[in-house]
């Protein structure tokens, strides 16, 4: 009786830091490096083995521009892990990590913030010559923010992309076990898949949020 694990992950960060390319590289092992700006959010799934356990990842790639943030909240909800991405050749995108983290915490209600599985990714290692953010600076920030693991990647040249996502999955699984994670069969789990007791409501709310879920039932019930 093998049980499937579901993990929901979100990727956040400024526009143009390479979120879409990271995900593209991770899921399809191909990256063109000229992906269009993401409108709203994009969704990908991937099956991986983590510590001999089969895990289904549902990864949300979000838009970087401010306009899409209020819509993004629907995507944040119930995320088991969150990648904060910046571009090592763009200092501003690094400075904005704090804002992204804060926005995530406020909207995803992730329970204990200190143990929440964040991962910080400094992308565009292939553009080392234009680097504006040193590894040291980035590591220090991660340390100050509760020892967040830090990865430097090149989504374009597939450097450390797999390990960054694997780290996310691992820590999320670990934390999930600590938080009494109930593993439900796919048919019951539905969208939520694995449902944690402590944020059950959050998951339920996600579906109804966009208005569509609230639509009148037209008198089918009393």
């Amino acid at each position: 009786m093998s049980k499937k694990q579901f993990l929901k992950m979100v990727i956040l960060g400024d526009s143009g830091v390479g979120k879409t390319t990271l995900l593209q590289q991770y899921v399809t092992q191909k990256a063109t490096g000229n992906s269009k700006p993401t409108i709203g959010a994009d969704f990908q799934k991937k099956e991986v083995m983590v510590d001999n356990q089969q895990v289904n990842l549902q990864i949300w790639d979000t838009a970087g521009q401010e306009k899409f943030q209020s819509l993004g909240y629907a995507f944040y909800r119930g995320a088991d892990s969150c990648a904060l991405v910046f571009d090592i050749t763009n200092h501003k995108s690094f400075e904005n990590l704090a804002m992204w983290k804060k926005g995530f915490i406020e909207n995803a209600s992730p329970g204990d913030v200190n143990t929440y599985p964040f991962v910080v990714i400094g992308n565009k290692l292939d553009k080392e010559v234009n680097r504006q953010v040193t590894s040291q600076e980035a590591r220090q920030w991660c340390k100050d923010n509760g020892d967040i693991p830090y990865y430097e990647t090149s989504a374009l040249e597939n450097i450390s992309v797999d390990s960054a996502f694997l780290e996310m999955a691992k820590t999320a699984l670990k934390r999930g076990t600590q938080n009494a994670l109930f593993s439900l069969p796919e048919s019951i789990g539905g969208a939520g898949g694995a449902i944690k007791l402590n944020n059950f409501e959050d998951r339920g709310g996600a579906g109804a949020k966009g208005g569509a879920g609230k639509k009148k039932k037209n008198g089918t019930c009393c």
Binding site: A74, A191, A206, G207, K209, A212
Partner: peptide, 8 residues
């Protein structure tokens, strides 16, 4: 039923 928000 699958909680696919149409906006997604």
């Amino acid at each position: 039923a699958q909680q696919v928000n149409h906006q997604f």
